[in-house]
Each structure stands twice: as C-alpha cells, then as structure tokens.
Design a binder for these strands. Sequence first.
DNA 1: GCTTGACCTTCCTGTTGGTGGAAGGAATAG
DNA 2: CTATTCCTTCCACCAACAGGAAGGTCAAGC
Lengths: 130, 130
Amino acid sequence: MNIGAAAELTSLPAKTIRYYEEIDLINPARGDNGYRHYNEQDVNLLRFVQRARSLGFSIEQCRNLLSLYSDKDRASADVKKLAEHKISEIDQKIEELQSLRTTLKNLADQCHGDHRPDCPILDGLAENNS
Amino acid sequence: MNIGAAAELTSLPAKTIRYYEEIDLINPARGDNGYRHYNEQDVNLLRFVQRARSLGFSIEQCRNLLSLYSDKDRASADVKKLAEHKISEIDQKIEELQSLRTTLKNLADQCHGDHRPDCPILDGLAENNS
DNA sequence: GCTTGACCTTCCTGTTGGTGGAAGGAATAG
DNA sequence: CTATTCCTTCCACCAACAGGAAGGTCAAGC
C-alpha cells in the first residue's frame, strides 16, 4: 500500500512516516514509480512506534524497542528495564509539575485579579530571593 | 557590568542571555568595545524571565509578562488570567502523564522480567487495539 | 612592552520530533 | 484530455537553547 493508506491505518501523518524513514527507523520497499510501498509488517511496526511514542518513549528508545522487538533472543528483562526507567522518568516529571503548580497557585491565589495595577504574581516573579 | 557578571547574578548561561537579546526580549546597552553592558534593571528583568521560565512559562508568555510588568496601567486580572491558564495547562499535563504511567505500569507488571523471549510489554505495544 | 589567560564578540551548526510548503511527476476519474 | 488527488524530493521553520570556531579586548604579571 502507499504512504497515504499506511498513514490512515496508523493514524500517523504521512510526513511523520517519511521522517521515520529518513532517520532510518522504518524502511519500506519502493515501487517502480518511486512510491513507498508498505506491507502489513511495516504497518505493524509503524503502529508499534506510534504507540510507544504516545507512551512517552523517545525516538531513540523506540529504535531500541524495535530492535528488541525483532530480536527473538532478547531477554524480556531488557524491555522491562527500559519501561521501568521510563516510569521513574514520568514520576519525576509529575513531581516537578506538581511543585510548579503549587508555586504558581500560591501566587495566583494572592492576586485579587481586578483592574488595580498591583499584582502579587508579577511581584513574586520580580523578587530577588527564591 | 559585562555579560559574565550578569550571567553569574541571574544563574543564566551567557549563551542564553545573548539568545534573549537576539529574540528581542532583553536588550542591554553596548560599550565602545562592543561588549554588552547590563545595568541593575536589566539584571532584574533577566531574573524575572529566569523565574518565569522555571515556572514553565514559554518565551512568548514571558514576553507577555514582561510587557505587563513594565506597563504601569495593566490590570492584575490580566496577569492572573495568564497564571491560571498556565495552571490548567499543568493540570492537563499531569493527568496525561498519570494515565501514561498507568498504562506503562500495567505492561511492566505483567512482564516476568527474565531472559525468556516473550514479553508482555512488547506484545502490548504491538497489539492492534488501544 | 610583551605575553598569557580570561573574557568578550559574531557566526555557524546541531539538537528533538517533526510540520509546512513549493515544484514537479504519477495515477485515476470523468 | 483534463482535473484532481496522491506521490516524490527538497528546503525552510518551530522552541530554546548548546557547542564550538575564529578572532577582538582587557587586565595582570614580569
């Protein structure tokens, strides 16, 4: 099938699929007319990447997962390690965001939010300490 | 003071400070030798941006905040609105990360994590549904 | 006066993960 | 035969800087 159909099936933009080929992630066959030709396996791999990306794996991690995926002799421990590493990354990110939210909320709560020009948020941002 | 001293005082890399000038965010004076010269006010603005950035505001939002900051007639409501928008952005991001974490954790928990070649994580990624 | 080293300048490239668009060839429908 | 759609490549751009090369400047020490 052509790139358009593959895009449809994977919910990936054609541009992105071409990009994945450019960075040597998923290489389809080519027809005589130069068109990319995707088979079922290609589409599966694309979907695999699409899912992994949406779970927050970077392209390089996807490349890693793909090679583990096609390597029949790999240990599932390798994959589990990658997933757990990712989970702790996510945990850290969540914590950062929560502390950030707290700070911002404190500032916003102190702001009376009317048309008076003094604003604790800006004052908070402008303060020398913290 | 020169850029190095300003960098020291604001905990921003000199590279970043130059970049902020390039994008017309904070424009210092220049000495006869072409060196950038930062006064107290410049340093305050840089610190302001540094703090806003660390709270997750984008450069464009910082530009907005800066203009509100120097506009004596602005209503604090404008600023509060920006802050609250940011908070809801953060909330959404946190939710996404949490759902992502759940999915990933489920997959990882099903993985026995030894050297057997079957791996629920990869299988989960390769599945056609969800 | 000279050298050394730290600091400054601009310019160019690369990062991550794509997106947008132009120019032109190929397939298909009427 | 033409119109439209799909495909191709290539080039540029986004955030928000970081790294490094090549060269100018300044202050200290001898």
